[in-house]
Design a protein around this nucleic acid. Structure first.
Lengths: 184, 184
DNA sequence: CGTAAGCGTTCGTCAAGCCGAACACGAGGA
DNA sequence: TCCTCGTGTTCGGCTTGACGAACGCTTACG
């Protein structure tokens, strides 16, 4: 439990998530069905929003409710498919590989992403402390921080920090991956 | 992301945590510095509490704020490959799917697992609060809590709590998956 | 029995959140 | 320059949540 007032945390979180979606204050208020003034005061840290107000905002921002009330969150690491450190199971024909143990206090959102060959998808830097784990399931990716892109094939794993500009580009049709977004 | 009304969730969570601590309604209200009536209406599900009210309650109950607003996750959740809620990107041939947003305070370890057809790999129950996210990359799995096993193919996603006995079994050669172990 | 203490609920009052409109500011465009 | 549009910020009003007191209820005790 953090001891900081939740109001400042919520204010910062709402503004952060709103920026992330590229929405203006008025636009977010309109979509959430609340008054601009309400949202303005909320982001200013003054006021004491009700649950329904916060809920409406969280739905539009497409984030779990709790992300608004809890405080926020090196180089490229690549593990090729054949380099996985396999931990065999003794009882069954079953093997497991630990790719990335979770440090305490981080949040990790699980995504699946797909792309077709074409222009790269670029992402602006996120807040410090973020990171992206990528595990390729099909096709080939060319991705990573700007200037440090790596090419990955099926089974390959890569991690790179998300607080620098980075990009994803598919080199083959039907390119897919499991993406684990990490932030504090 | 859940779309149920948060009021019922909060009402149930507050009552549950209050019972857990063995506090009466009046006693909790007194310690939290709020009126009995306010708490009564809150637990009845009527009303729309403010953040400060909820915060005061969470502090006394000694639970993270988010535990009051996040619905309890129970049972097996399956998202078939073709059921993924795709969030398209406007600028590039790129799509993403959020399968499991991370609640605060949990740890998630990223594994890759493979298995061959044969006896199932069974796992004893872990501590409460754990869970396992599985995303199939190749082959077919039959897995889940004992008695609730589901069959999953490439692209399918499943989550089930890890505090009950569960098992994994491969139905085809070369069956692999990304496994995200979650615990608090 | 009577009464006292504790439980949770309901009622009237007051403050505060929410709303809509009006406002100030800056970036284009004619 | 003037106008328009978009941004985010303040201002009255109305609604509603929070409060405290009173209520009905159950249990304990003299």
């Amino acid at each position: 439990m953090d001891r900081t007032t939740p109001l400042a945390t919520i204010a910062a979180a709402v503004r952060r998530e709103r920026d992330r979606m590229g929405l203006s204050l008025g636009e977010l208020a309109r979509r959430a069905g609340i008054a601009k003034s309400t949202l303005s005061q909320l982001e200013a840290g003054s006021g004491n929003p009700s649950v329904e107000t916060l809920w409406a905002i969280a739905v539009v921002l497409d984030v779990p409710f709790s992300r608004l009330v809890d405080p926020p969150s090196e180089g490229v690491r690549v593990v090729r498919a054949q380099e996985h450190v396999v931990i065999p199971s003794e009882r069954s024909p079953f093997t497991g590989t630990l790719l990335a143990a979770s440090p305490p206090g981080v949040r990790r959102d699980l995504h699946v992403i797909t792309a077709e060959p074409g222009p790269a998808r670029t992402a602006d830097p996120h807040i410090p402390g973020t990171g992206e784990h990528l595990l390729v399931t099909a096709g080939r990716w060319l991705c990573g921080p700007a200037g440090e892109e790596v090419e990955l094939g099926p089974g390959d794993y890569a991690y790179f920090p998300g607080d620098r500009a980075h990009s994803y580009r598919a080199l083959e049709p039907g390119t897919t991956a499991v993406l684990l977004m990490e932030y504090r």
